[in-house]
């Protein structure tokens, strides 16, 4: 690998590519941004120009309005920016999510964004993109994170529903990706009753349906003068932040559930007052992360955000070059 300059530099705005003069997933408004996926901490409004997948651009428009950026372009095939050739590849994380492969003078770089290697029927599966430098997330980069098969987690939700038919089951799930994943898993498990959703999930569920993702019978959980008994025995999905709002007060003695990779750790679940933790993640867990580094075998591994100490230690034990980028502004798993 020929190295004439540092091809990517961590800056307060986000990861910057001097050769192409653009940022990747910047957390502050910049002139030119390449965006991996539509989660709010990666895709922000107010950039001059945005390059992203069609679905990510659609999601940004849904979130922020049609004027979310000065200009935008759908990433298709290879886009040349300055001297840099950029190509988007599926990341398996959420609808529209991508890894970004860059060909620079400093070598081939793959920026994973957030990704998972577990199958997610809402989006194309992650694919390996060979590179000299792998820029990876490390949200669940501790050897304690070995996420179970999500179908067993959904089975626990259905068992609880059967055990407590008089209680509403409130499932906390992030509006983009997790909510639809939970719904699809429920449908796969044969649950065909109506699923109630918080208003904040409506637009993104509608968008998934428009993109051909079947979600079954969804109904709003925002009945203006609903009686408490109305939701007995029902599954209600909401962004976790809604549990702190008065919204949660309308449900009869609810079972608080939370779908997240963090739910593997009991203290995390208890802190949030979760009664039924559902370990459903859309990030790589420890085995997937280490497998990815091993398989791609990059000359260097750079870690963007998360628990970088552990993966740096693992790289050191494996004799692999690695460095932390210490990017700030990305949430562990946003709400």
């Amino acid at each position: 690998m020929k190295r004439t300059e540092t091809p990517l530099i961590p800056r307060p705005e986000g990861l910057y590519c001097p050769e192409g003069d653009f940022h990747i997933d910047p957390v502050r408004p910049v002139a030119r941004a390449l965006i991996t996926h539509g989660h709010a901490d990666h895709a922000r409004a107010g950039h001059g120009a945005v390059l992203a997948t069609r679905q990510t651009l659609d999601i940004m428009a849904l979130r922020y309005g049609a004027d979310f950026a000065g200009a935008w372009q759908v990433a298709e095939g290879v886009t040349v920016i300055g001297g840099v050739r950029a190509q988007f590849h599926p990341a398996g994380h959420v609808l529209g999510s991508a890894q970004i492969a860059l060909h620079t003078r400093g070598g081939r770089i793959t920026v994973t964004g957030d990704y998972t290697r577990s199958p997610n029927p809402a989006c194309a599966p992650w694919e390996p993109v060979p590179c000299d430098i792998l820029v990876t997330e490390a949200t669940f980069a501790l050897p304690v994170f070995r996420h179970p098969d999500p179908t067993t987690e959904i089975a626990r939700l259905l068992a609880s529903l059967k055990a407590f038919p008089e209680r509403a089951h409130l499932v906390g799930a992030y509006a983009l990706g997790k909510a639809q994943r939970v719904i699809m898993l429920l449908r796969e498990a044969g649950y065909d009753a109506p699923i109630y959703i918080h208003g904040a999930l409506q637009k993104l569920c509608d968008y998934h349906i428009a993109e051909g993702v079947a979600l079954g019978d969804l109904r709003p959980a925002t009945v203006a003068r609903g009686k408490k008994g109305d939701f007995a025995g029902a599954i209600v999905l909401a962004p976790p932040s809604a549990f702190a709002a008065t919204w949660a007060q309308r449900f009869p003695d609810p079972v608080i559930c939370f779908a997240s990779g963090w739910m593997m750790v009991r203290a995390r679940a208890r802190q949030r007052g979760v009664e039924l933790p559902l370990v459903i993640s859309d990030h790589v867990d420890w085995p997937q992360l280490t497998q990815t580094i091993t398989e791609l075998d990059p000359a260097e591994t750079w870690v963007t955000h998360g628990r970088e100490e552990a993966i740096l230690r693992w790289c050191a034990l494996e004799g692999r070059a690695a460095r932390p980028l210490r990017l700030v502004g990305y949430e562990d798993e946003p709400e």
Partner: peptide
């Protein structure tokens, strides 16, 4: 690192 995070 793991013990520190999990706490038990």
């Amino acid at each position: 690192l793991s013990y520190d995070f999990v706490g038990d």
